[in-house]
Design a protein around this nucleic acid. Structure first.
Length: 270
DNA sequence: AACGACCCCAACCGCAGACAC
DNA sequence: GGTGTCTGCGGTTGGGGTCGT
């Protein structure tokens, strides 16, 4: 399409940022907001391209960033989300679910830690299926059926009693309490921006098993209505990763297939 | 101490979608 | 609808740090 370069490369610095550059960028954004990245470097007196400034701010200088090691819960959440999301906006969507973490950080963490961790567990990090195991491939079943939201934003399944499902939905809050936009299905998690992904609108929830609840069946329903779908997939973590069933595993079975406990709702696809 | 191998992560690059005109 | 520009994303790279020999 013949795009012009994003900046005048001949007069820009590259490589590691200096403390002075960081200070200039931080001071400028604190005073003027993020605004137009293209014009920001010049306005801030930086010999950097706009993209570089944006990246430095988002991945390193932003005040709300959480530094330090990932917790086990964050690990597992990343793995689960990674297994559910396609390539498109994968890292940014995961980052939206992990307040204080950036897509770049999660991507790096995936490539350096989790990939190896899964491989050592005998799990293919790309397909999330057990390596050299023919049974695991059929274990993860993702199903779709329609969803509804009440006026407070709570998700419930069509045909299920809202209060019952609300109880099940309450279980997702170990993830949800971190972010602030549950009530608006159009908001991008954790970033307060409209979610514009054209072919996938995820409001994704993780829940512990709700086997006690007869209203929340975990049978693999292969039904999808136009526009909106809810996947209620009920695998425990071990099962969802294709690992052998543990003693504690209470995943239900249907026609020999285990169903997943990952409970993702309001997935819209084109 | 010196060297190479490996690891980690900040930063870059190119692409695609969104948007303005 | 077409075109150009900007932004945001995923994939990749490269340099510094760490570890093992």
């Amino acid at each position: 399409m013949g795009r012009s370069p994003c900046c005048e490369k001949a007069h820009t610095n590259k490589g590691a940022w200096t403390k002075e550059e960081d200070d200039r960028l931080t001071a400028y954004i604190k005073a003027h907001g993020e605004g137009c990245w293209r014009s920001l470097p010049k306005a801030a007196g930086l010999l950097r391209c706009g993209k570089s400034c944006r990246l430095r701010w988002i991945n390193y200088l932003r005040p709300d960033l959480k530094r330090g090691n990932f917790s086990d819960e964050e690990d597992e959440l990343i793995i689960k989300l990674h297994s559910l999301l396609g390539n498109k906006r994968r890292w940014s969507l995961i980052a939206g679910r992990l307040p204080g973490r950036t897509d770049n950080e999660i991507k790096n963490y995936w490539n350096t830690h989790i990939r190896r961790k899964l491989t050592s567990r005998g799990i293919d990090p790309v397909t999330h299926r057990a390596i050299n195991s023919d049974h695991a491939a059929s274990n993860i079943t993702i199903s779709f059926e329609t969803a509804q939201r009440d006026d407070k934003g709570a998700v419930f399944r069509r045909g299920a009693e809202p209060t019952k499902v609300a109880a099940a939905a309450a279980a997702i809050t170990h993830v949800d309490h971190h972010h602030h936009h549950r009530s608006n299905p159009q908001m991008d998690w954790g970033q307060g921006k409209p979610l514009k992904c054209p072919d996938l609108n995820l409001d994704l929830c993780i829940s512990p098993p709700s086997h006690e609840d007869p209203m929340v069946d975990t049978k693999p329903v292969v039904k999808r209505e136009a526009g909106v779908g809810v996947g209620v997939v009920g695998l425990c973590f071990s099962c969802s990763m294709g690992l052998p069933r543990s003693v504690e595993c209470k995943c239900s079975s249907f026609m020999g297939l285990r169903t997943a406990m990952l409970d993702f709702r309001s997935i819209e696809m084109k």
